[in-house]
Amino acid sequence: MASAFSFDIVSDFDRQELVNAIDQTMREVQSRYDLKDTNTTLELGESAITVNTDSEFTLQAVHTILQTKAAKRNLSLKIFDYGKIEPASGNRVRQEIKLQKGISAELGKQISKLIRDEFKKVQASIQGDAVRVSAKSKDELQAVIQRLKQEDYPVALQFTNYR
């Protein structure tokens, strides 16, 4: 039996599920009567989604559809960081939706401080864009996970590598 147990706190999403959600969104946009003739496009880049459509009204409708499809595929809506709505050529509008991935250094410090303050027998260390939490007891790690789930952080947290 190991002398110390650990897990990692990360902020990530399943890219294939996001691709599927975008495909379903495009299919619904092309089949819905009120959105059919808007020539709306969604382009998935490396770290952002670009939405190009004919008005802000249809942009809001596309947001709603995208959020619904993402939620059905167990993707957190916190991964979407909506940018500024910009005018595009031909009286159209464009918006870039950045995809949030990884825990920032500031948020990592905030999480590790919370763990240090509330759990004396648990160690937290920042490792790149993840936080490693270790303790001698699995029960203490479970308590840390439950406590972190109560907080509302600006990114979606996942708990991986539980050993």
Score class of each variant (00 low, 15 high):
L77P: 10
N91I: 06
K36T: 01
A156G: 11
E140N: 12
L107C: 04
S11P: 10
G45D: 08
V51I: 15
N91V: 00
M1G: 11
R32Q: 04
Y33H: 04
G102S: 07
I22D: 11
I49F: 04
I85G: 05
M26T: 04
R116H: 07
Y153H: 05
R92M: 11
L99A: 12
Q123F: 06
N52K: 12
G108L: 00
E106D: 13
Q67V: 03
Q127L: 13
I111M: 05
G128R: 13
A156C: 01
K120A: 15
D8Y: 14
A156D: 08
K113E: 10
R27W: 12
Q95P: 03
M1V: 10
R32Y: 03
K109V: 00
S89N: 12
K109I: 06
F159R: 08
R27P: 02
I115P: 06
K121V: 04
S112R: 06
D8M: 12
D23F: 02
Y82M: 09
I115Y: 07
L148K: 10
R116K: 15
S112F: 01
P87E: 14
T58M: 00
D129W: 03
I79S: 06
E140F: 03
V51G: 01
E28M: 13
T64C: 06
A70R: 04
D139G: 12
V93G: 08
S31P: 05
I126C: 03
G128I: 09
T160C: 03
N74A: 06
L148Y: 00
D81A: 15
G45W: 02
V19F: 06
Y33S: 13
I49V: 15
R15I: 09
Q60I: 05
R92A: 00
F159A: 07
L157R: 02
E86M: 13
L75T: 04
A130T: 02
Q16D: 13
E56C: 09
D8R: 15
Q127H: 11
A124N: 04
S125H: 08
V29E: 05
Q146W: 00
D23L: 13
N39L: 14
T25F: 09
N20R: 14
I49N: 00
A71C: 03
R15A: 13
L148F: 05
A143H: 10
L66M: 08
V10H: 01
T38F: 00
F159I: 08
I85K: 09
